[in-house]
Amino acid sequence: MGSKDARRLFLILLFMPFALWIILLIALPNIGMFILSLQEKVGPRVYTYGIANYVEFVNEPIYWNTLLRTATISLLVTALTLLIGFPVAYYIAKIAKKQSKGALFLLCLIPLWVSDLVRAFGWILLLRETGVVSGALQWLGLIDQPVELLYNDVTVVIGLIYTVILFMIVPLVSTLDGMDDSLVEAGFNLGGGRATVLRRIIIPYAMPGIVAGCIVVFMLTAGSYLTPILLGGKNSMWFTEQIYDQFITRYNWESGATFGVLLLVFTSAVVWLGLRLSGQTLAGTVAKS
């Protein structure tokens, strides 16, 4: 009996950090946010419960437009990241020689060693009116006066892709790595061309990795704050900026909490829809890679 109890205690202790993390840092804050979002201010320090905050969100087009815009750009970023990341991952997993695989993977990781903030400022140095790119274009004589390359949607999209692409490449590499080369050869041998082999064999095989990468990239992008604000400036209209505004600038915590809950629900709904459309499950994709 004694050893059985000891084993039990050991398992509980092992599980404890995870349980504490889930309960204290994820479940409780979100429950708190949800409760806060249902509070209405009726007078100084007087609150009642109701859905007025949600009604306000629906009635104010700028709010839900920002949310839709954020989701649309995030989906665009996810799609472009997949398009750029897939060939990179395929090269690392299938074409590169064994010795260079590790080095290439490391090269992909290097940007992560620098903080998000510093990387965003790096982009600013490159793209601002007096920046490197503008200067180089002038020196080459392609333009005759400085151009401002910051503060537009294209820059935000590029910056976001740069920030999140690694999270697409890692699951893709691990899925493609598990694919036997003879599957591709069999695809050719049985009469398929390059396009057929890609469409009917490689992509279906990599589907769990593609879906996992897309979910992570989409969630990270939709919830990102630094990159859109620094590279997009005042025009970025990113939903996380609205949340920040409500909490910090306007000191309207109830409304900020409402937006937070809405962002979570909305992005989760998009992910759920994506899973339904691709016929994958959360357990079969994100949990696997």
């Binding site: 036997d180 003879s182 599957l183 050869e185 069999a186 695809g187 050719f188 041998n189 049985l190 009469g191 398929g192 061309g193 009917r200 064999i201 279906p204 095989y205 589907m207």
Partner: peptide, 28 residues
């Protein structure tokens, strides 16, 4: 290779795991 009238049974068979038996045969 995809234009040669030579077909191959691979060492580990290389049956496509994401397709069922019929789809595997139908592929070619």
């Amino acid at each position: 290779p995809n234009r040669r009238n030579v077909k191959m049974v691979f060492q580990h068979l290389a049956l496509f795991p994401m397709m069922n038996v019929g789809e595997n045969i139908a592929y070619g």
